[in-house]
Design a protein around this nucleic acid. Structure first.
Length: 423
RNA sequence: GGAGAGGUGCUCGAGUGGUUGAAGAGGCACGCCUGGAAAGCGUGUAUACCCCUAAAGGGUAUCACGGGUUCGAAUCCCGUCCUCUCCGCCA
């Protein structure tokens, strides 16, 4: 969430920036400013009263020691009123703080200057096109047909075992999954990321830390008996490693990568958009996460974009990079780039990665801070990106590489699959 | 799941109602010493919020978390969470 300091000191700027996300923050932020003034004045009163109380208590202690019981009892009598006052003021403080937090949780991150104006997906800016379209045989098949033809993925079996959106990968289909995961992890390690293998189930505190809770509660599978959530992305457990910590500046940027299964309820999505691998309830993804200083975070973002781009290039997929407009950005990001690969058979672009800088928005909730050269403690910037999510990569690989003699595996992947063709 | 023990600062560890934000030790940082280092000596070493502010200074809160008792709680009581030991179960 946004910091109180930013909201109160740069209220107009925040409102103007939020407008780019088509969020009208005037009323909410105005209330934060009011509540914060109340909070401050209440604290002055409360602190004064508490100080007086502490003084009296010490005095009474001394009187007892000196055996002046009568005087001590007299002093005691004075504390009653003060005690009530402290209670009232304390409740007032807590209430104001809670209300502020409640409001701030509803306010999205402010987009940075580099974010273009726009209402929705149609206004995203194509930053770059790359790769080349492949010549496909006549009447190319969509991946769900190819998956059936070569017996790679069984969607019906998944329905039997679990439900729609939980496919069963078989034979070379399953091997391809492992190959991609290992390929992505090795590439990340070569780029300097430390691999971690976190839990795929997290507690509520972690959900709040990265912003899935409270606003996106319905997106996550919830184990009610234990009050735990299945992660929608490795971003959640990995970023939460840095919850409630103070890092040393020289340890930044922290670069982590992780492979996990990801679980998303995707309530209310039906139709051809979600056919086959296009949108699943469970999928594999390798995620990269960075914790950085505010001064360096945009440099980090660039490096992450370059890393993700190198992956789609090595997989020889036609791709494009989109700079998301204000209206299409997520709640928590300050800037976001999407990578899409072209699915020749479906005649559409598929999003395979999303690389974002959250600036201090997540870090504020996480209380992820660092000590700078002047020993001052500041919020870190957090960033993450998919590198990459498997299903749509698999969809694009199958569709774009289909030939009359089978599906060709890109050279970079062969050392991992140990086969060159799916036939 | 059953029984017991326990959760104190960067770490270890003392502390069972009254200058304890917290002894002591270690670690770390800086200074002195040294040709350089070690040893030694000295100093410093939490976070948040608020007041005041040029700087300095000051106040409040925090000893897992939340609540209660009390003039006063790290210390007593209740609840929650977590860790450890033993038993049970188990890939």
């Amino acid at each position: 969430m946004l910091t109180i300091k930013y909201v109160t000191e740069h209220t107009e700027e925040a409102i103007a920036r939020l407008a780019k996300k088509h969020f009208d923050g005037r009323e909410l932020l105005g209330r934060v400013v009011e509540l914060n003034n109340l909070r401050k004045s209440t604290q002055v009163e409360l602190d004064t009263a508490s100080a007086e109380m502490n003084r009296l208590s010490k005095e009474i202690g001394l009187l007892f020691k000196e055996g002046k019981k009568a005087e001590a009892d007299a002093a005691k009598a004075k504390t009653g009123e003060l005690k009530d006052k402290i209670k009232v003021l304390n409740d007032q403080m807590t209430s104001a703080e809670q209300q502020i937090t409640e409001i701030l949780l509803q306010v999205p991150n402010v987009p940075c200057d580099a974010v273009p104006e726009g209402a929705g997906a149609q206004d995203n800016v194509v930053e770059k096109m790359g790769g080349s379209m492949t010549d496909l045989p006549e009447n190319p098949l969509p991946h769900w047909e190819l998956a059936k033809k070569y017996d790679l993925i069984d969607f019906d079996l998944g329905v039997k075992i679990t439900g729609a959106g939980f496919p069963v990968y078989k034979g070379k289909g399953a091997q391809l999954q492992r190959a991609l995961i290992n390929f992505f992890l090795d590439e990340a390690r070569a780029a300097g990321y430390l691999e971690v293998m976190p839990p795929t189930v997290v507690n509520a505190a972690s959900g709040y830390g990265t912003g899935q809770l409270p606003d996106k509660e319905g997106q996550m599978y919830h184990c009610e008996v234990d009050d735990l959530y299945l992660i929608p992305t490795a971003e959640v457990p990995v970023t939460n490693i840095y919850r409630d910590v103070i890092l040393e500046e020289k340890s930044l940027p922290i670069k982590n990568c992780a492979y996990t299964q990801c679980f998303r309820r995707e309530a209310g999505s039906y139709g051809k958009d979600v056919r086959g691998l296009n949108r699943l309830h469970e999928f594999s993804k390798v995620e990269i996460v960075r914790i950085d200083t505010p001064e360096h975070s945009y440099e980090s973002l660039k490096e992450m974009l370059a890393h993700v781009e190198s992956l789609v290039q090595k997989l020889e997929l036609p791709y494009r990079i989109l700079r998301l407009c204000g209206g299409d950005m997520s709640f928590t990001s300050a800037i976001c780039f999407d990578f899409e690969v072209y699915s020749e058979a479906q005649k559409r672009w598929l999003e395979v990665s999303s690389v974002s800088n959250f600036e201090s928005y997540q870090a504020n909730r996480l209380k992820c801070r660092y000590r700078n050269a002047d020993k001052k403690i500041q919020l870190c910037h957090t960033l993450n990106g998919s590198a990459l999510a498997l299903p749509r990569i698999v969809a694009a690989l199958l569709e774009n590489n289909q030939t009359d003699k089978g599906i060709r595996i890109p050279a970079a992947l062969v050392p991992y699959t140990k086969f060159e063709w799916i036939d």
